[in-house]
């Protein structure tokens, strides 16, 4: 466990991976968005407005995956007390917040032409909004608490408590009556999309995953390097005191 989580080794390996991830993100993102926007056929009921799902579904999906990742990292952080786990969760939070905001924004622009309203307080929409506030709360802990060890511990607890919301978001459409429709992709009996629409959607989801990996790795690298910088600054100050 600790062998793989050695920050220096992690830095070295992740630096080899990120350029490739970035390249693949650009390729799949451009291909997926172009495919969804211009090539995929129009829906028989909604016409062109359904094209919003090619950005909405990946954003909403990753908003949950990202929080799940933070929750797992936080469990590791609490039990094994490894700084890399805290840094991973901390690095992912702003990325997840952006995904959540995008899911809410694009969903609202889809809702107006389809449902007839930008917003409704149904279980799915409300729990996704709660997710956005959980991200904000998590990020606020790191900003507000001065002592790093303390901040890490409180943030990890916030991440874990908030994780209870994840199954609520996912199953809200099955447990309660909602305006939001049930899952199209992950459901019994196969996807509810025609293959001509399914493939561009899967491409976009892959693009969002690659984006997530690339950006989170960069942010973790940043946090590791900043830790090294702080260490060096302290040593430099000590050296200077000894010399002066």
């Amino acid at each position: 466990m600790h062998k793989f989580a050695n920050p220096a080794r992690f830095l070295r390996i992740s630096k080899m991976i990120t350029p490739w991830c970035f390249f693949l993100t650009i390729v799949t993102m451009v291909a997926g968005l172009y495919w969804g926007l211009f090539i995929a056929p129009e829906d028989y009921q909604m016409g062109a407005s359904y094209r919003i799902i090619f950005v909405h579904v990946p954003a909403a999906h990753l908003s949950e995956i990202c929080y799940g990742f933070m929750a797992v990292a936080s469990v590791v952080a609490i039990i094994w007390k490894h700084p890399l786990a805290d840094q991973s969760a901390r690095a992912a939070a702003p990325v997840g917040a952006v995904f959540t905001a995008l899911a809410l924004f694009t969903g609202s622009l889809w809702g107006k032409p389809t449902w007839g309203t930008y917003w409704i307080w149904d279980a799915r929409l409300t729990s996704e909004l709660v997710l956005l506030f959980l991200y904000f709360g998590y990020m606020a802990v790191w900003e507000a608490v001065e002592d790093r060890t303390k901040a890490a511990r409180i943030a990890a607890i916030v991440a874990l408590v908030g994780a209870v919301n994840l199954p609520i978001i996912k199953f809200s459409v099955d447990w309660w009556n909602t305006l939001h429709q049930p899952a199209s992709l992950l459901r019994a009996g196969g996807a509810g999309l025609h293959p001509d629409m399914l493939w561009p959607l899967l491409t976009c989801i892959l693009a969002f995953y690659l984006f997530f990996v690339t950006v989170v790795l960069w942010r973790i690298q940043s946090l590791i390097i900043r830790r090294q910088i702080r260490g060096l600054q302290i040593r430099l100050a000590e050296e200077e005191r000894a010399n002066g």
Binding site: L37, A48, R51, V55, L102, F105, T106, L109, F211
Partner: peptide, 20 residues
């Protein structure tokens, strides 16, 4: 539907670019 679809794509690309 252009007024609904385009803002979604533009805002998504813009936000992801800034974050990246």
């Amino acid at each position: 539907y252009a007024i609904f679809v385009w803002p979604c794509y533009i805002v998504t690309v813009a936000l992801l670019t800034v974050l990246c």
